[in-house]
């Protein structure tokens, strides 16, 4: 976008205000996680703590198996991401490079599931997971999330941008599909795969509703559930500890996002989703 020189400074001021509004909750959580509860009540609008204290983190780690919970979240997010990206990649490859009857119809139905609200699949999924005996287990959280229509859509779009002749050259050279995927398609859609993976990871990391349905034992909890415990705990919200949980919850997705933001934005822009 070309900005008229005269408007450059006012635009920068407006953007700066927007950025402040967006960043405020993050700094607010960080500041409050380092405040004592009393300090928090005395100055609820000030971000900067009077005396920095790690008491909230200490309380969190003593009252809850916080390391185990973080580990659970990490395992769930990682396994879900790995499976989702593999299934999305394979499905997208088939939709783009295979010719089979009903391809477009199947693709249409698959993509239309993106618009199905979670509440529709929630009960059938719960019944299946219970009957498999996986309720209250990490695998119960993971299993229904192993494939994703949105991922298939994003990677299909990315693969469609590869000239077909590249794949045809490989076919003429008698290349097997796994080799075409590994040597040609994957390197060319790597930015899309990276960004989709990060997006999957963040989604799985922040997932709340499904784990809350499945997980009962605190030992199996994920970070969003732990956060909820402090927000709606009996006897009032201990919100400085809740902020400490928030900070831990934020660190990994934020780091991933900041590292790979170039790919993430690129993928969504090239797919026509903004």
């Amino acid at each position: 976008m070309k900005i008229n020189k005269r408007w450059e400074i006012p635009w920068h001021i407006i953007f700066f205000i927007f950025i402040l509004v967006l960043l405020y909750p993050i700094f607010y959580a960080l500041g409050f996680s380092l405040k004592s509860l009393q300090d928090a009540y005395n100055s609820p609008l000030s971000i900067i703590p009077k005396n920095i204290t790690f008491e909230n983190f200490n309380q969190l780690f003593t009252s809850l198996p916080a390391l185990k919970i973080t580990w659970n979240t990490f395992v769930i997010a990682s396994v879900v991401t790995i499976f989702k990206i593999i299934t999305s990649f394979l499905a997208a490859y088939a939709f783009v490079y295979f010719i089979f009857k009903g391809k477009n119809v199947i693709y249409f139905f698959l993509i239309s599931t993106i618009f199905l609200p979670f509440t529709i699949t929630m009960i059938p999924n719960y019944l299946i997971i219970s009957s498999l005996g996986l309720a209250d287990s990490v695998w119960g959280v993971i299993l229904p999330q192993l494939a994703d229509a949105m991922g298939i859509f994003l990677l299909t779009q990315a693969m469609r941008s590869i000239p077909v002749s590249l794949i045809e050259v490989a076919r003429l050279d008698n290349m097997e599909h796994w080799r075409i995927m590994k040597d040609i398609v994957l390197p060319l859609v790597r930015p899309a795969v990276t960004s989709t993976s990060i997006w999957f990871f963040i989604m799985a990391w922040n997932e709340y509703v499904w784990p809350v349905l499945i997980l009962k034992t605190v030992d199996n909890y994920t970070l969003p559930l732990a956060l909820q415990m402090y927000i709606s705990s009996e006897g009032g919200t201990n919100f400085t500890v809740a902020m400490a949980v928030s900070v831990i919850t934020m660190i990994i997705p934020l780091t991933l996002y900041l590292t790979f933001q170039k790919y993430i934005i690129g993928t969504f822009v090239s797919s026509g989703i903004k």
Binding site: S165, E168, V169, R171, L172, D173, N174, M175
Partner: peptide, 12 residues
């Protein structure tokens, strides 16, 4: 299949 026809091709 194309891979078994032993052809070399140059594309546009």
């Amino acid at each position: 299949p194309s891979g078994q026809r032993d052809v070399a091709m140059v594309f546009q």
